[in-house]
Amino acid sequence: MQASLDGCLFVPVADAGPGQVGTGTRFDYRERDGRVWAHYEGGDVVHGELVGTRAGDQLDFRYVQLRTDGSTASGHCLSRVTALPDGRLRLEESWEWESQPGSGTSAVEQVRR
C-alpha cells in the first residue's frame, strides 16, 4: 500500500534560485481519492498553492505563487514519490514554468511534525 501525503510537511533539499522555492519554503500537503493539493510559503514565496492528481507513485500538478517582490508565477510539475531509508517520503520533481521561461528538477523531503 502506498503512503499517503495527507498531512505531510515537505521542505526542499536545496535552494532553486531567486524568486523560487528554497530551503525556507514549507509545503503542507493534503491527499484524498487520487487528488493532491498543498499550500506553501517561505523564502521568496509569500503564498503558493498547488493542485493535481496522484496515480500510484506519480504526481501531476499545477502550481501558482506570489513572491515577496509582488510578482506572480505559475507552472506544471511531475513528481515521483519515493520512500527514504528512515521511512520519510521524498518527492523527486521535474517542473516547468508556464508563466515565464525555465524548467528544472528538484526534490523535497518530508519533515516529521
Rank of each mutant, 00 (worst) to 15 (best):
M1A: 12
Q2E: 15
A3K: 15
A3T: 14
A3R: 09
D6S: 13
G7V: 13
G7D: 14
C8T: 10
L9T: 11
L9Y: 07
F10R: 05
F10S: 04
P12Q: 11
D15E: 12
A16S: 12
P18F: 13
P18W: 15
P18M: 12
G19R: 03
G19D: 15
Q20G: 07
G22F: 02
T23L: 08
G24T: 12
G24M: 15
G24D: 11
F27N: 13
Y29V: 09
R30Q: 09
D33I: 01
G34F: 00
V36E: 06
W37Q: 05
A38C: 08
H39N: 10
G42L: 04
G42S: 09
G43L: 02
D44C: 06
D44L: 01
V45D: 01
V45K: 01
V45Q: 02
V46K: 09
V46L: 11
L50C: 09
L50Y: 03
V51K: 11
T53E: 06
T53A: 05
A55R: 07
A55I: 03
A55Y: 08
G56L: 06
G56C: 05
D57Q: 14
D57K: 12
D57R: 15
Q58L: 09
Q58R: 11
D60L: 07
F61P: 00
R62M: 08
V64Y: 06
L66T: 09
L66C: 07
R67A: 04
R67P: 10
T68E: 13
D69P: 01
D69R: 00
G70I: 02
S71D: 14
S71I: 00
T72N: 01
A73E: 14
A73C: 08
H76Y: 15
H76V: 02
C77I: 02
S79M: 01
S79Q: 06
V81G: 00
A83L: 15
A83C: 03
L84Q: 14
L84I: 03
L84T: 10
D86G: 04
R88V: 04
L89Y: 09
R90T: 02
R90G: 11
E93V: 00
S94L: 03
W95P: 01
E96T: 15
W97R: 12
E98M: 09
E98V: 05
S99Y: 06
Q100V: 03
Q100Y: 08
Q100I: 01
S103D: 03
G104E: 07
G104L: 15
G104K: 09
T105A: 12
S106T: 12
A107F: 07
A107V: 10
E109L: 05
E109V: 13
Q110T: 06
R112C: 09
